[in-house]
Design a protein around this nucleic acid. Structure first.
Length: 884
DNA sequence: TATACAACGTA
DNA sequence: CGTACGTTGTATAT
C-alpha cells in the first residue's frame, strides 16, 4: 500500500487544545447573549475545521481527560500540582465542546485513571500496526515520544491554536537534536515545571542532549554519573532520582484499555440539524457556514474560495505599453496597486507593480526614459500599497524621484492589528494572514531556484495582504493608519535622511576624559577591596559585596542578588563603605563613555548621525529610535548634558530649536477623566504640582513647600503608570502608611481621576483592548489570565496605554502638520528629531520667527482637548543650549 | 557565535 | 509592588 493510500487517523488531545484555545482568544470577545463563554470552543472548532480541510483524515477522535487525577497522581501526588484553579470562564466550555463534536459525528474518548495522552499513545500504536498514517494533535510535549515514520505530531505554537507545527522524525531531530523516542529522557533530566516535575538543576535542554549523545540513554547517563565533572555532574548525582521518577511518569501508556475499534472512528457525515442547533446556541455563525461548506452543504453565505491562489505570470512592459497598463490598472484597482522597490545600498535598483490579477516587473533605473510613465505614476497621488515602505521611500528620495500616494503599508497595518510584537516581514504576513508561503530562495540550495520572490511577486502578495487587513482592521484602526501613520511615515523618512550634526572632536575629548576617570576610579575601588575584579560583572560584584565584605543581601534576581544603583544606595545607607561609592561613580563614567563611543561610531561621512526610527515597534503607538537610539541621550546630570552639547546645528543653519509639550500625559489624563480639579489646574495657568499640592495639603499655592511639591509630583506621574502605595513609598523613601494617606488624599480631591483609571481597566476587560482618543487599539489578552502577576501587569499597562498612546498620536499629528507647513511655505528650516514629547529643528535665523510660530501653533493645535496643550521652545547652537 | 539577563539611559 | 523603549557587557552554552 502506498503512503497516499493509507487511511489517516487524526487524534486530538481535547483538553489540552481547548485550553490553548482559551488562552489564545480573548475571553470577552466570545460570549453568548446569556453570558456563556465560548472562546475555547470557538478556537477548537476553528482549528478542527482547518485540520479537516488540510489533512483530510479518514478516521478521527478527540480524547478528553476525565479529571485531573490519574494513576500518575496516585504514584506522585504532586504531579501537575502547580496548576492553579481552572479559570471560571473555562469551566463549562468542555461539555459544550463535546456536544458540538457529537453533532459533528466525531467520537470522543475518555478513560478513567488515564490521561488523554495515554489514549493518543494507545491509538497511535494500534493504528500503526493496522497500517494507518496517524496525526496527533496535542499541546503536551511528552507526545513527541510517539512520533515515528507513520506518526506525526501537530503541536500548537505559542501564538495561537490554529498555528500548528508539524513534528515528524526529521523535525524532532532538527529542533531537539535527538530521536523522538529519546525526548522523554531529555524531559526527565530537564524537568517540566507545568507538570510540577523538577528535573536535575543546572541541566537544560542543551546539556541533556549532549549527554544523550555521549552515553546513548538516560540509563547510560546515570551509570556514568560519576564521570561527569563540574557543578552539573554534582547536581546530577544529587538529583538523579528526580530524573528516574520523571522518566517513569512521562512514559505514555501504549496499551491502555481503550475500548474502541479503529474502524468505528471512520469519518461520518455530520448531523446537520444537530450542528445547526448546537452552533446556534453557541452563536457561531461563521463557523456554522464553514462546517456546512466543508460537508458540501450550502451554508447560505458564499464560501471564500478554498483553492490556493496561484501567482499570475509576470509581464515586462515599457514606454507606451506601460503607460497604458498603468492607466487601465489605476482605474480598475481604485484601492491601489501593490508596489515594491528593490533597494541595494540605499538606491533603487528595480521595481514591481501588481494589481489583483497582473504583475509587472520593471528593471528600472531612475531617470531612464523607458520608464517615464512609471515615475509619473510614482509622483502622482494614485494609491500605492507597500510593505515596509520607509527604506523604499528613502531610496526614491535619494535618487531624486518624487513619490506620493502611499495608501497602505502592510507592516504598519499588521502592527495596528497586533501592536507590540516584532516587526513582521512580508513572508511573516503571507504565512500568518494568507496561510501561504512567500516563495523564497534557499541559500543552501545548489541550484538557486527561480522561485525567489521578485519585486513584482512581493508587490502582488502585498496587495493581497492589504485586502486581508482591510477587513481584519476595525474602522478606527484604518483611520489611524490612513490619517496618522501613513503621513507620519513620510515625515520620519525625511528626518532620517536629514540626520543631525554631531561633533566628533568634542565626543573624542569627552571619551578620553571619562576613560581616564573610569580607570582612576577602578584603581581606587580595587585598593579598597585589595584585589582586582571586573566591576562590570554583577557576578563578581556579588562575590565582593556579599562574601568578602559580608554586606546584607539585597533584592533577589534570577542570578543572585541585585547590584543595581538602588540596591547599592541602600547598602551605602546601612553599611557605608568607600567601595560602594567608587563603584557607583565608576558605573556612571563607563556608562557615559559607552554612550559617547556608540554615538561617535555612528557619525556618518556627512558628519551627521542618521538614526532609524521604528514606526511599528511599540505597543502604545510611540516611535522608537535605533542605530543609534537618540531617544535616550543623557540629560539629568551635568556630565550627561555634555553629550548633548556635541549635538550641533548643522552647516548652513544658525540654531537648533527644541519644542516640547509640557506635561502632555497629565493633560491627557485631565481630558480623559474630565476631572474638574485637574482641568482647573491646567486652565489656571498655575504650576501644576503647586496647584495640586495646595488642594491636597489644604494650603495656599504659595505655601506649598518643595517637599510637598516633590511628593505630589511623584504621585501625579506615578498615577498614569498604576503606581501602588508600596512603589510610591519606595520612591519617596517615606513610610508606606504615609504614601497611602497621600494617595487617599489625592483621590479625595481628584476623584474623577481614580474613577477614570478604574474604568479604563474595566472597559479593557470587557472589550479585550484599550483605545486612544484617536482610535488606536491595543489588545490585552492577559487581563483575563489566571496568573496574578500577568494580570496585574496587564492592568497597569492597560491603564497607561490610552494616555501614552494618545500623547503619541498627538505628537504624530503635530509632526505631519509642522512638516507640511515648513514645506508648503518654502522654508528651508527643517525638523530633525523626535523624542516622544519633544521635537528638534535646524533653523535658518531669517526664518526663526515664522518657524517658531508654526511649531507652536501646530503642536498646541494638534488636538482639541478640554485643557490647553502648552509648548515650550528653546534655541541654541547645541542641543543642551537649546533646552530651556 | 548566539541568547538571556542585569543594568541603565530617555520620555 | 510604575508605563514605554534600545543598548551594553557579562555569563552561558554552542
Amino acid at each position: 500500500m502506498s503512503e497516499s493510500e493509507k487511511p489517516t487517523l487524526l487524534v486530538i488531545d481535547g483538553h489540552s487544545l481547548a485550553f490553548r484555545a482559551f488562552y489564545a482568544l480573548p475571553v470577552d470577545s466570545f460570549q453568548t447573549r446569556d453570558g456563556q463563554h465560548t472562546n475555547a470552543i470557538h478556537g477548537f472548532i476553528a482549528m478542527l475545521i482547518n485540520l479537516l480541510k488540510a489533512e483530510k483524515p479518514t478516521h478521527l477522535a478527540v480524547a478528553f481527560d476525565i479529571s485531573r487525577y490519574s494513576f500518575r497522581t496516585r504514584e506522585y501526588p504532586e504531579y501537575k500540582g502547580t496548576r492553579g484553579e481552572t479559570p471560571p470562564e473555562f469551566i463549562g466550555q468542555v461539555p459544550l465542546l463535546q456536544d458540538a463534536l457529537k453533532a459533528m459525528s466525531i467520537s470522543t474518548i475518555s478513560l478513567e485513571d488515564y490521561e488523554a495522552d495515554d489514549v493518543l499513545a494507545t491509538l497511535s500504536v494500534r493504528a500503526t500496526e493496522q497500517g494507518y498514517r496517524t496525526l496527533l494533535v496535542s499541546g503536551d510535549r511528552d507526545t513527541i515520544q510517539l512520533v515515528n515514520d507513520d506518526v506525526t505530531l501537530l503541536y500548537p505554537s505559542r501564538q495561537g491554536v490554529s498555528d500548528l507545527t508539524r513534528y515528524d522524525p526529521a523535525k524532532v531531530r532538527e529542533r531537539y537534536g535527538i530521536e523522538p523516542h529519546q525526548y522523554p529522557e531529555v524531559a526527565a533530566l530537564v524537568g517540566e515545571t507545568s507538570d510540577n516535575l523538577p528535573g536535575v538543576p543546572k541541566v537544560g535542554e542543551k546539556t541533556a542532549v549532549k549527554w544523550l549523545g555521549l552515553y546513548g540513554s538516560l540509563d547510560g547517563i546515570l551509570e556514568n554519573a560519576e564521570k561527569i565533572t563540574g557543578k552539573v555532574g554534582e547536581s546530577l548525582r544529587e538529583h538523579k532520582e528526580n530524573a528516574v521518577r520523571n522518566r517513569r511518569l512521562n512514559r505514555l501508556v501504549t496499551d491502555a484499555p481503550v475500548d474502541v475499534q479503529l474502524d468505528s472512528l471512520g469519518k461520518r457525515p455530520i448531523d446537520e440539524q444537530e450542528v445547526r442547533d448546537v452552533f446556534a446556541r453557541l452563536e457561531f455563525r461563521t463557523l456554522l457556514d464553514r462546517v456546512l461548506t466543508l460537508e458540501g452543504i450550502d451554508g447560505g453565505e458564499p464560501a471564500v474560495s478554498a483553492t490556493r491562489a496561484t501567482i499570475p505570470a509576470t509581464q515586462h512592459l515599457l514606454d507606451e505599453e506601460l503607460r497604458g497598463w498603468l492607466a487601465r490598472s489605476v482605474v480598475s484597482s481604485p484601492d491601489g496597486l501593490g508596489l515594491r522597490i528593490d533597494v541595494l545600498d540605499g538606491r533603487p535598483v528595480s521595481a514591481g507593480i501588481a494589481s489583483a490579477t497582473e504583475l509587472v516587473l520593471l528593471p528600472w533605473q531612475a531617470g531612464g526614459a523607458d520608464y517615464a510613465p512609471f515615475e509619473e505614476w510614482l509622483a502622482s497621488d494614485a494609491p500605492k500599497l507597500m510593505h515596509d515602505a520607509k527604506p523604499q521611500v528613502k531610496a526614491l528620495a535619494r535618487a531624486g524621484i518624487a513619490f506620493d500616494g502611499l495608501a497602505f503599508d502592510t507592516q504598519i497595518g499588521a502592527w495596528l492589528l497586533a501592536p507590540g510584537g516584532k516587526e513582521a516581514t512580508l513572508a511573516d504576513l503571507t504565512r500568518k494572514l494568507l496561510d501561504e508561503d512567500l516563495p523564497t530562495s534557499d541559500p543552501n540550495q545548489l541550484v538557486p531556484d527561480d522561485d525567489a520572490p521578485s519585486a513584482a511577486t512581493e508587490a502582488w502578495y502585498t496587495g493581497r495582504i492589504v485586502d486581508h487587513l482591510r477587513t481584519a482592521l476595525d474602522p478606527g484602526s484604518l483611520g489611524v493608519l490612513r490619517d496618522i501613520e501613513m503621513p507620519t511615515l513620510l515625515v520620519i523618512a525625511a528626518m532620517e535622511l536629514r540626520g543631525v550634526t554631531v561633533d566628533h572632536a568634542s565626543l573624542a575629548d569627552l571619551s578620553a576624559g571619562l576613560g581616564s576617570r573610569a580607570a582612576d576610579l577602578a584603581a581606587s575601588a580595587f585598593a579598597e577591596i585589595g584585589r582586582e575584579v571586573n566591576l562590570g560583572s554583577p557576578k563578581q560584584l556579588q562575590e565582593v559585596l556579599f562574601e568578602q565584605l559580608q554586606m546584607p543581601k539585597t533584592r533577589a534576581n534570577k542570578t543572585g542578588y541585585s547590584t543595581d544603583a538602588g540596591a547599592l544606595a541602600d547598602l551605602q545607607a546601612s553599611n557605608p563603605h568607600p567601595f560602594l561609592d567608587l563603584l557607583l561613580q565608576h558605573r556612571d563614567a563607563t556608562k557615559l563613555r559607552q554612550i559617547v563611543e556608540t554615538l561617535d561610531k555612528s557619525i556618518a561621512e556627512d558628519g551627521r548621525i542618521h538614526t532609524r526610527y521604528v514606526q511599528s515597534g511599540t505597543a502604545t503607538g510611540r516611535i522608537s529610535s535605533t542605530d543609534p537610539n537618540l531617544q535616550n541621550i543623557p540629560v539629568r546630570t551635568e556630565e550627561g548634558r555634555r553629550i548633548r552639547q556635541s549635538f550641533r546645528v548643522g552647516e548652513g543653519y544658525d540654531t537648533l530649536l527644541t519644542a516640547d509639550y509640557s506635561q502632555i500625559e497629565m493633560r491627557i489624563m485631565a481630558h480623559l477623566s474630565r476631572d474638574e480639579g485637574l482641568i482647573e489646574a491646567f486652565r489656571s495657568g498655575e504650576d501644576l504640582h503647586r496647584f495640586v499640592g495646595a488642594r491636597i495639603f489644604g494650603v495656599e499655592p504659595a505655601d506649598v513647600t518643595n517637599l510637598m511639591r516633590t511628593k505630589v509630583k511623584a504621585m501625579s506621574y506615578g498615577l498614569a503608570y498604576g503606581l501602588s502605595a508600596f512603589g510610591l513609598s519606595k520612591q519617596l523613601r517615606i513610610e508606606q502608611s504615609e504614601a497611602k494617606v497621600l494617595m487617599t488624599d489625592y483621590f479625595e480631591r481628584f476623584g474623577a481621576v481614580r474613577d477614570y483609571l478604574r474604568d479604563v481597566v474595566v472597559q479593557a476587560k470587557v472589550d479585550g483592548y484599550t483605545t486612544t482618543i484617536f482610535g488606536r487599539r491595543r489588545p490585552f489578552p492577559d487581563l483575563s489570565s489566571p496568573n496574578r502577576v500577568l494580570r496585574d501587569n496587564a492592568e497597569r499597562a492597560a491603564l497607561n496605554s490610552p494616555i501614552q498612546g494618545s500623547a503619541a498620536d498627538i505628537m504624530k499629528f503635530a509632526m505631519m502638520r509642522v512638516e507640511q507647513d515648513l514645506t508648503s511655505r518654502g522654508l528651508r528650516s527643517r525638523m530633525l528629531m523626535t523624542v516622544h514629547d519633544e521635537l528638534i529643528f535646524e533653523v535658518d535665523s531669517s526664518e526663526s520667527d515664522e518657524v517658531e510660530e508654526i511649531v507652536t501653533t501646530r503642536m498646541a493645535g494638534a488636538a482639541d482637548l478640554t485643557v490647553p496643550l502648552e509648548v515650550q521652545l528653546g534655541h541654541g547652537t547645541d542641543w543642551d543650549a537649546a533646552a530651556h
